[in-house]
Amino acid sequence: MSEDREVKIACKGISKTFHVPGQKKLLHVLNSVSLEVYKNEFLVILGPGQSGKTVLLNCIAGLIEPTQGSILINNKPITGPGPDRGMVFQRYALFPWKTVVQNVAFGLTIRGVPLKERMEVAQHYIDLVGLNGFEKSYPAELSGGMKQRVGIARAYASDPDILLMDEPFGALDAQTRYAMEKELRLIWEKEKRTVCFVTNNIEEAIYLGDRVVIMSALPGRIKTEHNITIPVPRAYTHPDFLTLRKQISEDTDLVL
């Protein structure tokens, strides 16, 4: 079923090692990771606290270069970050001196899109994430959940093919997190993009993902993957959900 779908991202044999300052040994973070992501798929990369999943995402984003291996986006090798990939960060990374609308329009500003058009596009996504009325607010005035909605709107607004999300709800409390997961799924259903979502939370992975790829502890490699066939909208306490959760929990490593 997935074979005849277009491959958006193709990672082949990605390895990454870091020099740790002050230590002789090298830190092996990724160990020959190969992964394909299909068009408009919501892929979740799940792993314990330290598994190199953020590093993998940063490689796909073009922020870091892999030590070995290749990454093809739309069948072309990447040469660094680009407007075809939008990113949402765990710590929001909003520009504190810019208002919400200016933050959301950032990607367009960088590309030199004229003011009127920028503002229209930004407004569309601000409405999409439910922040109507907060256009002129500064990030410092917003709650964590709202900040991340700005982050999501900002990533969407620069019109990328691919959305890369690095544990975007990791800093939020449990209940806000559930609310944001529901909203994200709704937003994505309205405007589908290819999504690579990184998390350490199994419930979140099952709730959001079409497919969940499980990474091991360091050095990170792909252990296994699961296709999530539970119909949406999913319920966290449904017996099928819980069974899958137990299964996936057994597949993930415990890192102390």
Partner: peptide
């Protein structure tokens, strides 16, 4: 550095 990374990710 996160802010710079964010800018880079948008192609700055």
């Amino acid at each position: 550095p996160l802010l710079i990374d964010a800018a880079r990710s948008f192609g700055a």
